[in-house]
Simulated scan of single mutants.
Amino acid sequence: MDHGFSVLFVCMGNICRSPTAEGVFRHLVRQAGLQDRIRIDSAGTHDYHVGAPPDERSCHHASLRGYDLADLRARQVKALDFERFDLICAMDWENLELLEDACPPRHRAKLKRLMEFAPQGLGEVVPDPYYGGEHGFEQVLDHVEAACAGLLQHVQRKLDLPPV
């Protein structure tokens, strides 16, 4: 089945920011009725947590806002991802740079920072909450929700669909 468009969210270990983005974007895509047209995944630039579920704190804070991350498992970015995905969204400059280093030149245009889709003024990156307190996980959700709303509009334009 042709999904029409595919998005990969990337952070360092794929246990905090990128699975949160995957869960939020899946929720928005389902609400828009586009789950059959948009393929969504997440991965990490590092192999620290391959096979592990998202961080408990990420799951807890996401669940408070109605997002379920329980079925997600960490994986590392693979060379094939640069072929398979239409858009690859890094959570910060460091992970974007790591992706650029690994990405074949013909696919570089697919690489973006997720926050490029957020309203101005929120910041350029989704801050890493791993070593911080509870507030960091709420801040990740604030950033990701704002950026994913803009991302959905971007994807709808790419699919030539009216905004919902």
Rank of each mutant, 00 (worst) to 15 (best):
residue 99 L to V: 05
residue 125 V to Q: 12
residue 44 G to D: 01
residue 136 G to P: 06
residue 137 F to H: 06
residue 38 I to Y: 08
residue 21 A to G: 01
residue 54 P to E: 02
residue 95 N to G: 03
residue 123 G to Y: 13
residue 122 L to Q: 08
residue 121 G to A: 05
residue 13 G to Y: 07
residue 138 E to G: 09
residue 143 H to Q: 12
residue 68 D to V: 00
residue 34 L to Y: 09
residue 83 E to I: 11
residue 61 H to D: 01
residue 108 R to W: 03
residue 98 L to E: 10
residue 118 A to N: 07
residue 147 A to N: 07
residue 117 F to C: 00
residue 29 V to K: 05
residue 104 P to A: 08
residue 97 E to Q: 14
residue 4 G to Y: 02
residue 153 Q to V: 02
residue 35 Q to D: 14
residue 63 S to H: 01
residue 137 F to G: 09
residue 39 R to V: 06
residue 43 A to W: 05
residue 127 P to H: 13
residue 112 K to T: 01
residue 158 K to R: 15
residue 58 S to P: 00
residue 12 M to A: 10
residue 43 A to C: 02
residue 143 H to F: 05
residue 69 L to V: 08
residue 115 M to F: 01
residue 106 R to A: 12
residue 70 A to K: 14
residue 92 D to F: 06
residue 59 C to R: 15
residue 111 L to A: 03
residue 133 G to W: 03
residue 137 F to S: 02
residue 42 S to F: 08
residue 15 I to C: 10
residue 131 Y to N: 11
residue 35 Q to P: 02
residue 161 L to T: 05
residue 36 D to A: 14
residue 87 L to Y: 06
residue 122 L to K: 12
residue 7 V to D: 08
residue 124 E to P: 07
residue 6 S to Y: 09
residue 160 D to L: 13
residue 42 S to Q: 02
residue 76 Q to L: 00
residue 117 F to A: 07
residue 93 W to L: 13
residue 45 T to K: 11
residue 23 G to N: 09
residue 13 G to Q: 10
residue 64 L to F: 05
residue 142 D to R: 14
residue 57 R to S: 11
residue 47 D to S: 15
residue 52 A to P: 05
residue 106 R to P: 06
residue 117 F to E: 03
residue 104 P to I: 14
residue 26 R to C: 01
residue 103 C to V: 00
residue 81 D to A: 00
residue 92 D to N: 10
residue 79 A to H: 03
residue 116 E to K: 05
residue 26 R to V: 00
residue 24 V to I: 12
residue 43 A to G: 03
residue 54 P to Q: 08
residue 83 E to C: 09
residue 68 D to G: 04
residue 24 V to H: 04
residue 127 P to V: 11
residue 149 A to G: 10
residue 41 D to V: 05
residue 102 A to Y: 03
residue 72 L to Y: 14
residue 30 R to E: 15
residue 26 R to G: 02
residue 151 L to N: 05
residue 156 Q to H: 07
residue 102 A to W: 00
residue 164 V to F: 12
residue 78 K to I: 04
residue 39 R to N: 07
residue 85 F to W: 11
residue 22 E to H: 13
residue 68 D to Y: 06
